[in-house]
């Protein structure tokens, strides 16, 4: 199991970390803790994985639930202001990219928790069918929700 877990960990860590980062307003330390919590659960439940869905879907399902649980324990979230960004950066493009990301984090935070989870999965590029499987919503319902949340986010970021 150890080898299988290591493979899963290496393949999925970045995606899980990115989703967690979006959930905790870009707070790197919190996202790292959260991702660790997710993989502890994966480690604990790996025997229960029945291959009914892909391992990716299964991990995302754990991730969204752990996010919901984790945020209950850590209600105080770090607010990242735009001024915290390093001004001494010589790479303007990187600076712009970071600024855009911070703006996106801020907009994602404004959404309701279910909407936040759904849009984070959309941003990761997951098909709607898989999102429906992870969240437990019907495919039809997800289609409507995704359309509505996409509009909200685009309007906020623009």
């Amino acid at each position: 199991m150890s080898q299988q877990f290591t493979k899963i960990y290496e393949e999925h860590y970045q995606k899980v970390h990115r989703l967690c980062l979006g959930y905790v307003n870009g707070d790197e330390a919190l996202a790292k803790d959260l991702a660790q919590d997710v993989f502890i659960k994966v480690w604990e439940h790996l025997d229960a994985f029945q291959q009914k869905s892909s391992i990716g879907t299964w991990i995302y399902r754990i991730t969204v639930n752990v996010c919901l649980l984790f945020i209950r324990k850590n209600k105080t979230k770090k607010k990242i202001s735009f001024t915290e960004l390093r001004d001494d950066s010589l790479i303007l493009e990187e600076h712009d990219h970071q600024n855009r990301l911070q703006q996106m984090y801020a907009c994602i935070q404004k959404l309701k928790e279910t909407e936040r989870i759904i849009i984070l999965l959309v941003l990761e590029g997951l098909p709607q069918k898989e999102i429906a499987e992870i969240t437990g919503h019907s495919h039809q319902n997800i289609r409507v929700l995704v359309h509505r949340i996409k509009e909200k986010l685009t309007k906020c970021v623009s």
């Binding site: 860590y13 970390h17 990115r18 980062l21 685009t154």
Partner: peptide
């Protein structure tokens, strides 16, 4: 800004995050 651009920006982040020891 289109949603595609937002998604692109999103997916570019954290690729460089070092894998922590488990």
């Amino acid at each position: 800004m289109e949603f595609k651009d937002i998604q692109h920006t999103w997916q570019q982040q954290s690729e460089a995050t070092k894998l922590p020891d488990f």
